[in-house]
């Protein structure tokens, strides 16, 4: 078992290039934690510091109660899946999977048994004697996973492992990873910039921006209760509409500067008397099959609406309504405030 605790972590490259400042984070044991954020937010750096591939400038990283600061990566009982897999091109698939075990002087019989087990689980037994460069992207991905799994680590660290795969394969491996996490019952830390990956796989999401934690919660809470404008606008396709509250027809809490609502909560007809109302011009309508996404403009603000019937095809000037219960309020500092 292993929880990961980051205390007061600072990381800077050179003197004036802080990437992460005073980061505090606890990654729960056996959780599937996704570090989510736009590129350059420091999520990969955090993962690499947990792995020990990079040293923090200051602060402490604990696995359970054990200080990892001076423990080299190979002794941290972790497995790392690289974005481009980093499979040794000079070795066969079997060589790749075995390499770490051989270096740890594990008996041959046990190595063979472990390789067998992992390969049958990931369905790569037939490629064992091939070189990685002769495999497809999805196969390489699974070999990289096998190389990590065969070590039976306490913690799996994954750095955007799906970003090199096509969309269909990504969906498939996403479900595979969820099943794998259940089966292995260990801690997964997963880095991605793709909110869909985070929402679909995580038990906990850590949303990061510019080296700071914006919100840490379960995917459902992240979606329903964004704690600030950044998380409101990062999660969801399309993201939450956040508009200046000056246009509001209803009373808003003291200090409220922005009002947010999810596109699927937008209605074309008034339901209650105190519904939030905004008048806008429909700019485009995208029929996506199960849903229709309507883009509308109100002054210089863009508002998205999601409707789940293909009959919904508004045109021209329209009033959009949102029930009060579905509104989120944010203050001038873009932090959430409550009624």
């Amino acid at each position: 078992m292993s929880s990961i605790i980051l205390q007061n972590i600072d990381k800077a490259y050179g003197k004036n290039a802080p990437v992460i400042e005073n980061l505090n984070l606890e990654i729960k044991d056996k959780s599937f934690t996704v570090l989510l954020g736009p590129s350059g937010c420091g999520k990969s750096t955090i993962l690499r510091m947990i792995a020990g591939l990079e040293a923090q400038t200051s602060g402490t990283i604990l696995f359970d109660d054990e200080d990892m600061t001076n423990v080299p990566p190979e002794n941290r009982d972790i497995a790392f899946v690289f974005q481009n897999y980093a499979l040794y091109p000079t070795m066969t698939v079997r060589g790749n999977i075995e390499f770490g075990l051989k270096n740890r002087k594990i008996p041959k019989a046990e190595i063979a048994a472990r390789v067998e087990e992992v390969c049958s689980l990931l369905d790569i037994s037939e490629y064992l004697n091939r070189k990685p460069q002769n495999l497809s992207g999805g196969q390489r991905q699974r070999v990289a996973l096998a190389r990590a799994m065969v070590k039976k680590p306490d913690i799996f660290l994954m750095d955007e492992p799906l970003s090199n795969l096509d969309a269909k394969l990504r969906n498939q491996i996403r479900t595979d990873l969820i099943a794998l996490h259940k089966r292995l019952n260990t801690t997964f830390v997963y880095v991605t910039h793709d909110q869909v990956e985070a929402m679909s796989m995580a038990t906990d999401i850590v949303l990061l921006n510019k080296g700071k934690v914006m919100q840490m919660s379960s995917p459902a809470e992240m979606y329903k209760q964004p704690r600030n404008v950044f998380s409101a606008k990062f999660i969801g396709t399309p993201a939450m509409n956040v508009i200046s509250s000056g246009k509001s027809n209803i009373s808003v809490p003291q200090g409220c500067a922005y009002v947010g609502f999810r596109p699927e909560n937008v209605m074309l007809e008034k339901k209650n008397n105190d519904d939030f109302c905004i008048s806008c011009d429909v700019a485009s309508t995208e029929m996506l099959g199960a849903e229709t996404v309507i883009k509308a403009l109100s002054g210089d603000e863009i508002i998205f609406m999601r409707a789940f019937t293909s009959a919904c095809r508004p045109e021209g000037r329209q009033n959009f309504y949102v029930e009060r219960a579905n509104l989120c309020y944010f203050n001038e500092q873009e932090e959430r405030i409550y009624e």
């Binding site: 792995a51 190979e74 980093a86 390499f99 770490g100």
Partner: peptide
């Protein structure tokens, strides 16, 4: 690419190996 060396390090490989 540097990531091969990082992977090797995590695989407990000595520098000679």
């Amino acid at each position: 690419p540097k990531h091969y060396y990082e992977a090797a390090k995590l695989d407990n490989s000595s520098s000679v190996k």
